[in-house]
Simulated assay, not measured.
Amino acid sequence: MTDRDLALLTSGEVELVGQFARSSNATFLVRLTQGDDVAQAVYKPEAGEQPLSDFDPGLYKRERGAYLLSEALGWGMVPPTVIREDAPLGVGSLQWFIDCDFRQHYFTLAAEDPSTHPELARMALFDFISNNTDRKSGHVLRGGDGRIWGIDHGLCFSAAFKLRTVIWDFAGEAIPDGLLADIAPLAEAVPEELAGLLDDDENAALKRRARRILQDGTLPVDLTGSRYPWPLV
C-alpha cells in the first residue's frame, strides 16, 4: 500500500456506493476520494451490526484487530483496515477493497492450484491464533496479482475457543520454523494497539493459543468434525 492509498483510507472522503447482499451485518461498498485520488473500500458500521449473544457490539474493532495481528506476524494476509468515526453511518471499519475474481474462493483455489497451498495453510494457522469463528470459503480471495487475502474477521478473538473454518485440508501438518518464529512473540505479549481492542480475557487467550501452537508445532486438527461455519461458502 502506498502512502497515497493509506491517506485515502485514513482521511479520504467516504461516499456510500452500495450495500453487499446476503451479509449478516450491514456492509457497504464505499468510494474514497482525496483530491484527484480515488479508491474503493468496504465499510462495516457498528450501527449495522446484528446483536449477538457471544460477542459484544463493536465487531468493527475485531476487523481492525485481525489486520493488526496479520501485520504483527509479518504475514500481510488481511487487507489494510482502519477505524473511521467520520464515516456516513457512524463509527466502523474501512477495509481496502480487493479487486479479484469472486468466482474463486478457498475450495476452488485448494482444488485447482496447489501453488496456493502454503498460503492457505498459513491462513489456517492465522485462524487458529485469531480464533476465527467464521472462515467461510468465500472469505478467501485471490487478488488480481495472485496474492491470497483473508477477509471478514468480525468474529475473531473470543476468549472461549470458537474456531470454525473450512480450511482443514492441512490439519496435522508440521508448521515451518519460520512461521513458528513469527508467532513466538505473541506467546509473551500482544501488540499494544491490538491489546487495546480486546479485553483482558481475550488477550490472555490469544497468548495461550500462541503457546499451544509453539508447543505442538503442527496445524490444528478438528477431532469433532464439526468446526465448520455455515454456510460453507
Rank of each mutant, 00 (worst) to 15 (best):
M1V: 10
M1T: 12
T2A: 00
T2K: 09
L6F: 13
A7C: 06
L8F: 02
L8I: 01
L8M: 10
L9G: 13
T10F: 01
G12K: 08
E13V: 14
E15K: 08
L16E: 12
L16D: 12
V17K: 11
F20N: 04
A21N: 15
N25P: 08
N25H: 00
F28M: 00
F28C: 01
F28R: 05
V30Q: 10
R31E: 14
L32T: 06
L32G: 10
L32V: 11
T33P: 10
Q34E: 12
V38R: 08
Q40V: 12
V42Q: 12
K44S: 07
P45T: 01
E49V: 11
Q50A: 12
L52Q: 15
L52R: 15
F55T: 12
D56Y: 11
D56R: 11
D56T: 15
P57I: 04
L59I: 09
R62Q: 05
E63A: 00
R64N: 06
Y67V: 08
Y67C: 13
L68I: 02
L68G: 04
S70V: 08
E71T: 06
G74V: 02
G74Q: 09
G76Y: 14
M77P: 04
P79M: 07
P79T: 09
T81G: 03
I83N: 09
I83D: 07
R84N: 02
D86R: 03
L89A: 14
I98H: 10
D99G: 07
H105K: 03
T108F: 02
D113I: 01
P114W: 01
T116I: 04
T116E: 09
P118N: 12
R122Y: 02
R122D: 04
R122T: 01
M123W: 09
M123K: 01
M123I: 11
M123S: 08
A124S: 05
L125E: 06
D127L: 00
F128W: 10
N132Q: 13
T133W: 15
T133I: 03
D134C: 11
D134Y: 03
S137W: 01
V140P: 09
L141K: 14
R142T: 13
G143M: 00
G143T: 15
G144E: 15
G144N: 08
G144M: 09
D145S: 07
D145E: 15
R147G: 09
I148C: 12
W149H: 10
W149M: 06
W149V: 04
D152Q: 13
G154I: 05
C156N: 13
C156W: 15
S158H: 07
F161R: 12
R164Y: 05
T165V: 02
T165D: 11
I167Q: 06
W168V: 00
F170T: 11
P176R: 07
D177K: 12
L180S: 05
D182E: 11
D182S: 13
A184W: 03
P185D: 15
P185H: 06
P185Y: 00
A187I: 00
A187Y: 06
A187T: 00
E188R: 05
V190N: 04
P191R: 07
E192K: 08
E193Y: 12
E193L: 02
L197F: 02
L198N: 03
D199H: 05
D200A: 13
D200S: 10
R208A: 06
A210K: 01
R211N: 00
R212P: 07
L214F: 13
Q215S: 15
T218I: 14
P220M: 03
P220F: 08
L223T: 14
L223D: 13
G225M: 05
G225C: 00
W230E: 13
P231E: 11
P231H: 06
